[in-house]
Amino acid sequence: MFKVENLGRVVRVTMQRAPVNALNNDFIAALDRVLDDIEGRADVAVLHVRSDQRAFCAGADLAQVETRFAMEEGANVMVRDIREFHRLFDRIENLPCVTLAEIGGTAFGGGFELALSFDLRIAAEDAKLGLPEARLGLIPGAGGTQRLTRLCGPGTASRIILACDIVDGAEARRLGMVQWAVPGAELANEAAALAERIGSLSAASLLVSKRCIARVAPLSRAGYEGELQGTHGLMALEDTRARVKAFFAQRR
C-alpha cells in the first residue's frame, strides 16, 4: 500500500492503493505503521508523501461510506471512523519533522483533509482540489472546516466548503491552499528538490520553528467535536440519505 524510500534525511512515501488511494481503516492502519518508524528516527528531517495513482487521494473509501449508510447504527460507526481520521491527521501534523505533500492529481474531501495536515503542499498546476461534501448533504468532517479556515481564513474556507468550488493547483496557490504550484511534468523533480533542500537545513531548528508556528493558531477541540456531531446529525436527514443514494446510483 505504501512504498518507503530512505533518501538520507528525507523519507519519501509513495501511496499505492489503487485506484485512487481511498481512505479506509486498512489504509489508516498501514500508514500508522509507516509513521511508527518515522517517529522513532532522529535522522529524518523531512517526510515527503506522494502518489503513483491518478489521484493524490480521492477521499474516504466510498464502499466503506456506503456500508455506514446501510447500517442501523451507521451514524455512530461513521463518527468512529472520522475520529480515526482526526487522530491520524493530528499525528501527521505533530510529527517531529517537516512534512511535504506532493499533489499530482485529485485531492478531494478526506484526501484534501489529509494534505491539509502536512506542513507544506506542492501541487501540479492542473491538479484538482476541493471539499465537495455539501453536495451529498455532509460536511468535511475530518478537520477540513478547521484546518482550511486556519490556513486560508474564513473567506476562502467558505468558498471551498459552502460553494463546493473545485480549484486547480494554480488557483489553490493563489488562495493559499498550497504553497507551490508547478507544471505537472515538473512536479516530481520540483518536489524532490524541495524536500532535499529542506532536509539539508538544521533538523533541530526546523522542529523548534514548527512547534512555534503551531502555537500561533492551535486547532480547536470544540471545532472537531462540532464536525463529529454535525456528521452524526446529517446522516439521519432524509435529504442527506437521498443525496447519497443518488450519488451511488449514478456511479453504478
Rank of each mutant, 00 (worst) to 15 (best):
D90C: 14
Q53T: 07
S117L: 11
L62A: 08
T67E: 06
L129H: 02
R54Y: 05
A124W: 02
D126Y: 10
F56A: 01
L138K: 06
H86S: 06
A55M: 02
C97T: 12
F112C: 07
A63K: 13
F69R: 00
L138R: 08
A63G: 08
P132R: 11
E72F: 08
R54V: 02
M78Y: 06
L131M: 10
R135S: 05
T145D: 15
R50Y: 09
F69M: 00
R83M: 10
R68W: 05
L138N: 05
I139G: 10
Q53N: 09
V79Y: 09
M71T: 04
Q53V: 01
I122W: 11
L116V: 09
L120H: 14
D90N: 15
G144Q: 04
P140A: 12
V77Q: 14
I82V: 14
F108C: 00
E73P: 01
E73R: 13
T106V: 00
L95P: 12
H86N: 08
F56V: 00
K128H: 07
G137S: 04
M71Q: 09
E133Y: 12
A60C: 06
A124H: 02
L100M: 09
A124P: 01
R50D: 11
T99P: 07
G130P: 03
T99I: 07
E73W: 08
A107F: 00
D61W: 04
P96T: 12
L100E: 06
G105N: 03
A75C: 01
E93V: 12
P140W: 04
M71A: 10
R121T: 06
E133G: 08
D119A: 09
Q146D: 15
L116R: 14
D119M: 07
E125T: 11
L88A: 15
R50H: 12
E93L: 15
R68D: 01
G141T: 07
A134Y: 07
E73N: 11
V65F: 00
A142W: 00
T145M: 15
F108W: 05
E72H: 11
F118T: 07
A123S: 13
Q64N: 07
M71C: 04
L120Q: 13
G137I: 01
L62T: 05
G104F: 03
P140S: 09
A115L: 00
A70D: 03
L100N: 08
A123C: 10
I92S: 14
G105M: 02
G130Q: 07
S117H: 10
R121N: 11
L138C: 02
R50Q: 13
R87H: 14
I92A: 15
G130Y: 05
L138G: 04
A55F: 01
V79N: 11
F118N: 10
M78L: 09
Q53E: 05
A58L: 08
R91G: 13
G74E: 05
L114C: 12
R83I: 00
E133L: 12
M71R: 13
G111M: 03
E93K: 15
E102C: 03
G130F: 03
I139R: 15
R87Y: 13
F112H: 11
F56R: 01
A55T: 01
A123Y: 12
G109S: 12
R68Y: 06
V98W: 14
L100H: 11
V98G: 08
F108Y: 09
A60G: 07
A58T: 03
N76H: 11
F56D: 00
